[in-house]
């Protein structure tokens, strides 16, 4: 029965989270803290840290984490499936209509307006990730940054990274692993 409850909770999270993983966080908070007593407040704070520290989509990390704590591996699987089921249904329907009607001129007009906006949305999310990498403090914005908060090692790593990506077309995954290893030597050993 608990598995069914987990499924239904994460189904709702997947269904109402418009705008990606960060939009899902308040919904997850409601489900695991208010609707059910699945996690303590401290555990929920840890969930946020770990979901953002570990690779993968944040909503899926959170689903797996809650599922495991509540009902072990079956819980993790059920929570993940619950979270992606609304996407599967809705996005498959949208895909079907998109590929059927994408050549209609009215659809082309909409898409032509959309594309530059999507580039900006990706750029905007990218900028916050860049800020997070370059400044030591977590809650830095364009309005309150100061020189003493700048992490110069990170700036060098980012610059070298962009250089090898653009000049030598290096594989992005290799770049990320390489900077991680450099990180161990600089931040961990020194």
């Amino acid at each position: 029965m608990i598995l069914l409850e987990i499924f239904w909770s994460f189904f709702q999270i997947g269904l109402f989270a418009i705008g990606g993983g960060y939009a899902a966080l308040p919904l997850i908070e409601h489900q695991v803290l208010e609707a059910h007593n699945w996690l303590t407040l401290t555990e929920f704070a840890d969930l946020l840290t770990i979901s953002q520290m570990t690779p993968g989509p944040i909503a899926l990390n959170a689903s797996t984490f809650v599922g495991t704590r509540v009902a072990g591996l079956p819980g993790a699987i059920v929570a993940t499936i619950g979270c992606v089921t609304p996407s599967c249904i809705i996005v498959l329907i949208l895909s079907y209509f998109y590929f059927k009607y994408k050549n209609l001129s009215s659809i082309q007009g909409i898409l032509k307006g959309l594309r530059p906006a999507v580039v900006s949305l990706i750029a905007s999310a990218g900028l916050s990730i860049l800020m997070l990498a370059v400044f030591k403090s977590e809650d830095i914005t364009i309005w309150n940054m100061s020189l003493s908060d700048i992490n110069f090692i990170s700036i060098i790593l980012v610059s070298v990274g962009v250089f090898v990506l653009r000049k030598y077309k290096m594989d992005p995954i290799k770049v990320m692993i390489a900077t991680g290893i450099v990180g161990i030597f600089i931040y961990g050993v020194m």
């Binding site: 750029a123 860049l130 990498a133 990170s154 790593l157 610059s159 990506l165 653009r166 991680g180 050993v189």
Partner: peptide
């Protein structure tokens, strides 16, 4: 934590590269 801090820089570099290309 050191590994993740380093990887953050790598992620930022990759994103920056993609943004430059798309813009």
């Amino acid at each position: 934590n050191a590994l993740l801090l380093g990887m953050r820089a790598g992620v930022a570099a990759v994103i920056l590269d993609v943004i430059i290309k798309m813009v």
